[in-house]
Amino acid sequence: MKTIACYSNKGGVGKTATSVNLAYAFAQAGQRVLLCDLDPQGASGFYLRVKPSKKLTEARFFEDVKRFTKSIRASDFEGLDVLPANMTYRDFDVFLSRMRNKRSRLKKALVSVGGDYDVIVLDCPPNFSTLSENIFKASDLIVVPVIPSTLSERTFEQLIGFFDAHKLPKKKICAFFSMVQRRKKLHLETMETMQKQYRKRFLKTVVPFSADIERMGQYRAPVLTYAGRSVAASAYKSLFKEIKKGVGPVK
C-alpha cells in the first residue's frame, strides 16, 4: 500500500482538484483506491457526491473498527472509495498509523470486507500545520501544487526549510506547477527560476489554468469523466503517470 498526500502550506492551489483526479486515475488503472477527505469542508467528497458522515465527529470513533470501516463510502467509480471529511487531527494520526500497520485490527477488518487498498490519497486541508510532520512521515509521496507566483516561491522555500530543519527526506516531495497561465510573464519567469533552484523537486507535468477544471464543481465528477479529451485531462493523465512512477510498485 502506498500513501500519497496532496499537500500545500498555502490554500486554494488545487490540492483537492488534484486529489480527486489522481485518485480516479489510479482506480481507472485497476488499483483499489481510498480517497481520504481531510478537509472539514468536505471538498473532495463534494466532487464525488459523497455526503460527509456525521458519525465521524464522534470522539470514540477510532476505537471502533467496525464503525470506521462502515463510514467508508463507495464512489460511483469502480475501485474508488471515499472516507468522508470530519476527522479530528488526533483521529487522523491514529488512522494513518493503523493503516500502515499490517497487523492492526483496522487493517484486518478492511481486508476481511475485501477493502484493502493499494493506494491511499490524502486530500489535506489548508493550514494543516499541527499534523504536517506526521503527514510527511506517513506518506510515501507528497504532491505539492505550486502556483507560479512570487508568494508561492516563498511558501515553497518554507516547506523545504521545514524538511531540512526536521531532517525529513526531501525526495518525497513531488511538486508541480498548478493553474499555470502561459500568457502571464510572471508565471513563466517564476517557473524558470524555481525549476532551476529545485530541479529534482519538480515534476515535468504542468497543469494549466483551465475552465474545464473549474467546472468540476458543476459536474461533481473527475475531469477525466466529462472532458476526457481536454488539455486539463491530459495534464492530469501525465501527472498520474509521473506520480505512479514516483511511488513505484503499489502492491
Binding site: V50, S53, K70, S71, I72, R73, A74, D81, V113, G115
Partner: peptide, 13 residues
C-alpha cells in the same frame, strides 16, 4: 418471472 438482485455499495447500508 424476474430475478432482482439488489447490490449495495460500501457505506450505503
Amino acid at each position: 418471472v424476474e430475478l432482482v438482485q439488489v447490490e449495495g455499495l460500501r457505506g450505503y447500508d
